[in-house]
């Protein structure tokens, strides 16, 4: 096992970095998309419930199937991987963003409007900061989930640790096959832990002291 790792240290490190980078970038993109969608729908109950249903149903789609479906329009490589990972990443964040924004006390919004804040300023300065802890909860769930989904993305030759898992699976029983799978799986778990720690730290830094629990 150690031989396997030490002989491929550089490749593992590179893949781990690629994996992490894919997840982090998709996550950022997903947060932006989710917050924008939530901002558009949270005031309208009908649209908000549609968005909630979409995010609930979306999560039931098998990641593997979606990755496969992406091959036809997008081919192999980074693009289908990014699309799939981002799609799944959006869902929990969207759900929490709608809940969080909907949970902001309407009196505070009125207060903000009443002292002359524009709609946009009210959203950025009041609603978003107050909903942020809830949104961040969604981001953490999302981060854990897409760590695994990013591994599946290796099926379309996307970057990351998934490559070790698929190559191990394809030559199961052969020399180093188990080691390969273990490296992939453990690597993903470790990366997930690291990212979660980073997000907890981000939460500390970005949650205003006045609303910290």
């Amino acid at each position: 096992m150690w031989d396997y790792i030490s002989s491929r240290l550089e490749a593992i490190g590179f893949s781990a970095w690629q994996h992490f980078s894919l997840v982090a970038q998709c996550l950022i993109l997903a947060v932006v998309i989710a917050v924008v969608i939530a901002a558009l729908v949270y005031r309208r109950p009908a649209l908000a419930s549609v968005a909630n249903s979409v995010s609930a149903i979306g999560l039931t789609i098998p990641a593997f199937a979606l990755v496969g479906l992406m091959i036809a329009p997008l081919g192999f490589g980074v693009t289908p991987a990014v699309v799939t990972v981002t799609f799944f990443a959006v869902l929990p964040v969207l759900r929490n963003a709608i809940v969080g924004l909907g949970g902001v006390d309407p009196a505070l919004v009125e207060s903000a409007r009443g002292i002359g804040m524009s709609r946009m300023r009210t959203f950025v300065r009041v609603e978003l900061p107050l909903a942020w802890p809830v949104i961040l909860g969604g981001i953490r769930v999302s981060a854990q989930m897409i760590m695994g989904i990013a591994a599946v993305a290796a099926y379309v030759l996307g970057p990351g640790l998934g490559g070790f898992i698929f190559s191990g699976l394809s030559r199961l029983g052969g020399a180093g096959a188990t080691e390969s799978i273990v490296v992939g799986v453990v690597g993903v778990v470790l990366l997930a832990l690291v990212l979660d720690l980073l997000l907890v730290g981000l939460g500390r830094l970005t949650t205003p002291r006045g609303i910290r629990v």
Partner: peptide
């Protein structure tokens, strides 16, 4: 918005922003 910046507005419990 411009008008409201020229008129003070107070609601029940103050309506302060907790953050």
């Amino acid at each position: 918005d411009e008008l409201r910046r020229r008129i003070g507005y107070v609601i029940q419990a103050g309506g302060l922003f907790p953050h």
